[in-house]
Amino acid sequence: MRRSVAALVIVFIGAAVMELATSGTYLRYVKPGMRWMLLAAGVVLIALAVTDVLVDGRKKPAQQEQPVAMPEDAWRDAPWPAGRRDEEIDHSAHADHGHGHHGLPRTAWLLLIPIFALLVIDPPALGADAAERQSPVSSKPANPKSNAWMADNSQGAPPVAVPVTDYAIWAVWQQDTMKGRRYQLTGFVTPAKNGVWYVTRIGITCCVADGTAYMVEARGQAAPPKNQWVTVTGLWAEPTKRPDGDVAALTVETLKPVAMPVNPYE
């Protein structure tokens, strides 16, 4: 890859990363805490590319094309001469491999793929399609989160808003504190077989690659369209027994379509 093209690609990557971080789109892919790291990475990349163009622009063209002895690329993996650890080994013998004539790796073109993915596909936040690939069964929490405060709410009180990720676990594993109370959940619709549908929220700990679906079976209401975000209120219901475990459930009393929250994950 030519140096000027490389600088261009890097500017685009830096700009894309900063655009994601400033517009809030980054929340579709990573945790909110990543924002400042993304901004810093974008600034560093753009600064790198801009200085490169500025400094090289002042140099003579002949000097500019001189590769600064870069390691060769992996695509052509020529066996190394015997004294390969000698620092003084002639770089020119290998400097061309996979680098065109300009010392920069051709693999760099691959960096355009995520840019195109962002610009063309505009990947949405994980939704029902990702949730369908996972099991709705509530797995036993390794370190149960206390919901002792629930006891302060009398059983006839108005619905308590709780995260879907908590309800999906509490409703199965801390049933005693949950029984007889009303809850309000916000999530998207994941339809399943036989009219069953789930209020779903994806929990992420780092990025979408570790996204885990938390699903609560909604009873008593027909399924809204797939991926529709809804806020439901209702009564705790007996979990659905399945051969592989229990699925949290809620008897829905009210259902309201809502817009996707700023941070789609919990």
Partner: peptide
């Protein structure tokens, strides 16, 4: 495909 794209961009961005 869209889920794949989200995962792909997510891992790259992360």
């Amino acid at each position: 495909i869209r889920t794949w794209a989200t995962m792909f961009v997510g891992v790259t961005i992360q």
